[in-house]
Amino acid sequence: MSLDNRGIGRKGGISRRGSVLFLLILAILLIYITNSGPRLLTSIRQFTYDLIAPVTEFIGRPVVALRKTGNALTDYTDLINENAKLKAQLNDLLAWEDRALRLEAKIVRYERLLNVKIDGQYNFKTSRVVADLGGPFVRTVLINSGEDENIRVGQAVFGASGFIGQVVSVGNSSSRVLLLTDLNSRIPVQLEPSGLQAILTGDNTNEPILNFYDDKDVPEKGARVVTSGYGGRIAPGLIIGTVDVNREGQPRVKLREKITNMNYVRVLDFKFIEAPEDETQLPEALKITPKNSESQNTDNKIEAP
């Protein structure tokens, strides 16, 4: 192997200077063009995901197996402690179950009395996470369901125990899910039991920030955070996590779902109530047509003395 510096600018090296310059200019142009996020680029990206999804799924199998083995080993070594903890939790939960059943019966009675129209049930589709497309720019995962399985953009995605994000692009056999932790993620949420409305903003860390809440109310540490359903995209009442206030006094949300070890996710299919048309069609009886409006106007005119 020769030690001379063959490469940029040398004949037969990486390229001729003209090509380097041309591609550099092209790259800079592409940065500016793609910054606006044209639809064509989204389609190209989704096409690439469709292509790579089976490959990453195949490559990821040993990693998934390794992770499962690791988890199993950890569980096995901590079996006695875990058992004691579970027994204590079971005792607590039995009391909660009793309370929940009584409350459920009460709610059903009230709903019947008030004739309340309640939200419909969710249907869901379980999908496998095949690639973690996270980087400094985005926090997204790729799942192996797409248009073929009736997945649509905007559908909420649930992990084993909590809401994790929403579908942002759909291909034939794969979809990209924007996680709650992403810099671009903005989810309207509600705090329980206070009912405080806020926006959950991602910052690429695992604890997104609570923003745009009423200044008079402060999010309480430990309050449950659920989706509010405002905006008409994500179903209301999906559990996200609990409020945690950091050292700087900034309210953040501890996610219920561990975004680290997601193997499978559920894509929720929830139908929102359609909003009425823009121009409300009033029934004929309610329409008031001003009769002799012109004459009325002239009647109302005050003549100058």
Partner: peptide
């Protein structure tokens, strides 16, 4: 394409890396 970063940045960075090494 995979990282959802603006197209072109990857090339400029890798070209820089290649140039520095050379």
């Amino acid at each position: 394409l995979l990282l959802i970063s603006p197209i072109g940045i990857g090339f400029i960075l890798y070209l820089g890396l290649h140039y520095f090494v050379i």
